Amino acid sequence: MIDTKFMSTVIGLACVTAVGLSATGCAAAAGAAPVGSGQSAAPLGVPSSSTVPASAQPSGAALSNAPSSPAAGAPSANQSTAAASGTASGTARCHTQDLSASFTVVNGSAGAGNISYNLRLTNTSGRLCTIYGFPGMLLLNARHQPLPTNVVWDSLVAKRLVWLIPGGSAASTVRLSPDVPGAGDNGTPAPGQQWTCEPTAYDIEVTPPDETTQLVTAVAPATPVCSRGMMQASALIAGGTGPNQ
Rank of each mutant, 00 (worst) to 15 (best):
P181T: 03
S50Q: 15
S100G: 07
N65S: 15
A27L: 04
A190T: 14
L164Q: 08
G239A: 07
L236M: 12
H144W: 00
C94W: 03
N65M: 04
D98T: 04
L236G: 07
S68I: 12
A42M: 08
I11V: 14
A110W: 10
V180T: 15
Q245F: 11
A170V: 06
L128D: 03
K159L: 14
I115T: 15
L99H: 01
L44D: 09
S89C: 03
T122A: 01
Q39R: 11
G86A: 15
A235I: 06
G229R: 05
G242C: 09
T241L: 14
R175I: 08
A92L: 10
P75W: 10
V152D: 02
G73I: 12
A27W: 02
M137G: 10
S125K: 04
V46A: 10
N118F: 09
G229T: 10
A33K: 05
L63V: 11
V180E: 11
A170I: 03
S227G: 12
G12V: 05
V225S: 02
P166I: 14
C197D: 02
N141D: 15
L140G: 05
Q245Y: 12
L164A: 03
T17R: 00
Y117S: 02
S69C: 11
T124H: 06
N186G: 07
L147T: 07
Q214K: 01
T81R: 09
A18Y: 00
D3H: 11
A72K: 03
W163D: 05
R160H: 02
M231N: 10
W153S: 08
S37E: 06
T51N: 08
P148L: 10
